[in-house]
C-alpha cells in the first residue's frame, strides 16, 4: 500500500476503504469493549449500537455510559461528553484546504475521528482534487461501519469473544500506534519539528500514565506547539533554515 502516488488506478472510494483497513485493528477491539461495557451497564444491544452510530466518538461514549450507569445528572453527562470531544474542533480546518465545495463535506465530518483525521491529513494532499471526496467517503465509512459493527458484536457476544481470543484484544490495538507512527514519520523533517513532535508524544504518554488521557491530548499538542515557537525564537540565526 504505497502512498506516494498522486493518482489512483482504481476507484477512489475503494482506495479509501483499503487504506483505512489498518484502522480496524484499533477500532474493533475498542468497539467490542464498548458494546460489552454498555451491555453490562444496562443498555440493550440495540441502544448501544445506536449510541455508536449517532455519537461516534470513542472515549466520550465510554464516559457517557459510565456516567449514566452511575446515576449522574444527564446535563452533566452531555457536557462532559462534549468537553472530551472539543479537541475535534481543530481537525476540519486543517483539512479544509483540500476539501472542495461539495455539499457532502459538512455531513461527512461526522466521520472525522482522531484516526480518520490522521489518515486524511496525510493522504488528502497527495490526491487529485476529484478523488478526495470518494477517498474520504470510503475511508470514513469503513471506520464508522467497523465501530458500529464492533459495538453490536460486543453488546451481543462480547463476553464470549473476550474469553475465546484473549490475546487478540491485547495485540490488535497496536495497529493504531503503528499507523500513527507511519503517518508521522515523514513529519520529522527538521530538528525543530522533531523536538516539537517528541514533546507532544512524551507529554501525551505521561498524561495517559497518570490517568489524564483526554485532557492529555490537547495539553500535549499545546506543549509541542509552545516548543515549536520557543525554539524558533531562541535559536540564533545562522543563515540556515531549521524549519
Amino acid at each position: 500500500m504505497t502512498l506516494q502516488a498522486t493518482s489512483m488506478p482504481t476507484r477512489p472510494w475503494l482506495t479509501g476503504v483499503r487504506e483505512a483497513i489498518p484502522l480496524l485493528g484499533g477500532y474493533l477491539p475498542v468497539a467490542i469493549s464498548f458494546g460489552l461495557i454498555a451491555a453490562q451497564a444496562g443498555f440493550t444491544p440495540w441502544e448501544a449500537t445506536l449510541i455508536s452510530l449517532l455519537v461516534y466518538a470513542g472515549a466520550s461514549q465510554f464516559l457517557f455510559v459510565g456516567m449514566v450507569a452511575s446515576g449522574a445528572p444527564l446535563w452533566l453527562v452531555v457536557a462532559m461528553t462534549l468537553l472530551i470531544n472539543v479537541r475535534h474542533m481543530v481537525y476540519a480546518p486543517n483539512l479544509a484546504p483540500w476539501l472542495g465545495q461539495s455539499r457532502w463535506w459538512p455531513w461527512l465530518m461526522h466521520g472525522l475521528t482522531d484516526q480518520v483525521f490522521a489518515l486524511a491529513h496525510h493522504r488528502l494532499p497527495q490526491l487529485a482534487a476529484a478523488q478526495r471526496l470518494g477517498w474520504y467517503t470510503g475511508a470514513a465509512l469503513l471506520a464508522w461501519a467497523s465501530w458500529v459493527a464492533g459495538t453490536a458484536l460486543g453488546a451481543v457476544a462480547g463476553e464470549w469473544v473476550v474469553a475465546r481470543w484473549p490475546l487478540l484484544g491485547e495485540i490488535m490495538p497496536f495497529a493504531l500506534p503503528a499507523l500513527f507512527l507511519a503517518l508521522l514519520a515523514p513529519q520529522f523533517t527538521s530538528r525543530r519539528w522533531s523536538l516539537a513532535l517528541m514533546i507532544s508524544i512524551i507529554t501525551a504518554l505521561l498524561c495517559t500514565l497518570l490517568g489524564y488521557t483526554n485532557i492529555g491530548i490537547p495539553v500535549a499538542a499545546a506543549c509541542g506547539a509552545l516548543c515549536f515557537y520557543a525554539v524558533r525564537f531562541t535559536t540564533p540565526h545562522r543563515g540556515g533554515n531549521d524549519e
Binding site: V90, N94, F180, Q187, W193, L197, S200, T213, A221, G224
Partner: peptide
C-alpha cells in the same frame, strides 16, 4: 493557496494533535 490561507498555528497544531494521539495509544 489553501495552505497559505490557514493560520500558522493551525498548520502546526494538526501534526501535533496526531503526535499526541500517538503518545496516548503507545501506552
Amino acid at each position: 493557496e489553501g495552505v497559505d490561507a490557514m493560520p500558522q498555528w493551525l498548520t502546526i497544531l494538526g501534526p501535533l494533535m496526531i503526535a499526541a494521539v500517538l503518545g496516548v495509544s503507545l501506552v
